[in-house]
Simulated assay, not measured.
Amino acid sequence: MLLAGFFGVVMGLVLGLTGAGGGILAVPALVLGLGLTMTQAAPVALFAVGSAAAVGAIDGLRHGLVRYRAALLIALLGAIFSPVGIFFAHQLPEKILMILFSLLMVMVAWRMLRRERREPGPSDHGHANWGQKNCMLDQQTGRFSWTAKCTATLAALGAVTGVVSGLLGVGGGFLIVPAFKQLTDVQMRGIVATSLMVISLISAIGVIGAFHAGVRIDGVGVVFIVASILGMVIGRKLCARVPARLLQIGFASICVMVAAYMLYRAGA
């Protein structure tokens, strides 16, 4: 129980600091640390990630940072495609799921270690020229200009996020955060808050689908979920004080080590 609480706090802390990556750590913690199978760990991880993300999303809504229309569109498509991932998760062997998850962790670590230019200023408005990004903020209203290109981009992102979420039990923040940075001119504070809202919505759908498939959460899972919410609260309070680059390097290093161990376990 203590171990479950510790892992839950760490997962929530990472999610609160970065807006992504919580599920990436949650599943290995449950599988390697607490002895669950991949299919057992997925709904617990989703429930924990979704609950913690909801706390962060509410905080983001209070501060006007969440792009809620974009979040709802992504979550809607995620909800539609999440059962596809859940179906395949129950068809694939445990070893294949572990290998896929390990490769996913390596990809996330690589993206974390890449140096990216940081936009200055506290404003949530981006600085790209009109047309540079698929989705641009209207400088008059501060909201997205909903062109066909922007709508299609966010819908596709939601579909991919939903499938991966259902398949591997992750919230999808590792996809949403870099995609928003690449495809929109929203600043990082808004990206993190929007990502947390999407994660909370998609995770909820994934949990419902898993329960429908017959998966149940035991006492250890409940402790992990409650601890993750506590970690999220702490992470949101610390996010302005922790150097971003230090956090990225530390998180990426953990991802690589855990991925290597999961690949070793899958091959054993």
Rank of each mutant, 00 (worst) to 15 (best):
L2M: 05
L3H: 00
L3W: 12
G5S: 10
F7S: 03
G8I: 12
M11A: 08
G12A: 01
G12I: 10
G19P: 08
A20C: 11
G22F: 05
A26W: 09
A29I: 02
L30E: 01
L34V: 02
G35D: 09
Q40D: 08
P43V: 08
A45L: 03
G50Y: 04
A52L: 07
D59K: 01
G60R: 10
G60L: 08
Y68T: 11
A71I: 12
L73P: 12
I74F: 08
F81T: 15
G85W: 07
F87R: 05
A89S: 15
H90W: 04
Q91L: 15
L92C: 11
P93W: 02
M105G: 05
V108F: 08
A109I: 08
A109P: 00
R111F: 07
L113E: 02
R114T: 13
R114F: 02
R115G: 06
G121N: 07
P122R: 15
S123E: 08
D124N: 14
H125Q: 14
A128E: 14
W130V: 02
W130Q: 10
Q132F: 09
M136V: 01
L137K: 04
G142M: 14
T151G: 09
A152T: 14
T153Y: 02
L157H: 06
V160H: 07
G162T: 05
G166Q: 11
L168W: 09
V170I: 04
G172A: 08
G173A: 05
A179G: 01
A179Y: 06
K181N: 01
M188F: 01
M188W: 00
M188H: 03
V192Q: 08
V192I: 15
A193S: 15
I202G: 08
G206R: 04
I208L: 14
A213C: 03
V215Q: 14
R216P: 00
D218P: 01
D218E: 10
D218S: 03
G221A: 03
V223K: 00
F224I: 07
M232C: 06
L238I: 12
C239T: 11
P243I: 15
L246Q: 09
G250Y: 09
G250H: 06
G250E: 08
F251W: 10
F251Q: 12
I254W: 11
A259F: 07
M262F: 00
